[in-house]
Amino acid sequence: MNRVAVALWNPIVAKEYRSRMRTWRSPVAMTVYILLLGGLGWAIFSSMTFTARNSFNGGQAANYGQGLFLYLVLFQMVLLAFITPALTAGAISSERERQTIDLLFVTKLPTFSILWGKLLASMSFVLLLLLLSVPIFSPASLLTSVKVPLPLLR
């Protein structure tokens, strides 16, 4: 194995992936995240169609699409700003709590690898959440280029 691979991939990452995806918390967290984001998107879209129907020129879908996309991005940022620290902050202290940190220190893993492994494992869960939100963002993104009055889409 070359040095980069060793630095990027270490046993901690593999173990974290395994134990994280085996709990019921992960699917629940993913579901709640998608429901929140999707629910907000749906609420904004509904209110937009309502205002567009009553507006003077019917409202161009593209304009509303941009607004919707912007709101979703902002909301996603706020959500991740809360989720990321919740995932990463306890990574090392939980090892200490479980009294397993000494066991890692006596192995040949350098301290940096332990930290890096923990960080990488948590960050990739955040990345997974981002990927999961693609189906919500793609219709919003599609809407930005639709040149018809919004009420016609309903």
Partner: peptide
């Protein structure tokens, strides 16, 4: 650390791993 195996006076086990995976993890470490 290379020459020594240390077993502390507490277990230090991870949830969600099987016995075989647990040993494999430390062997990898």
């Amino acid at each position: 650390h290379e020459r020594l195996g240390y077993m502390p006076d507490f277990f230090g086990v991870y949830d969600q791993l099987t016995s075989a995976e647990y040993l494999d993890f430390y062997a990898a470490c």
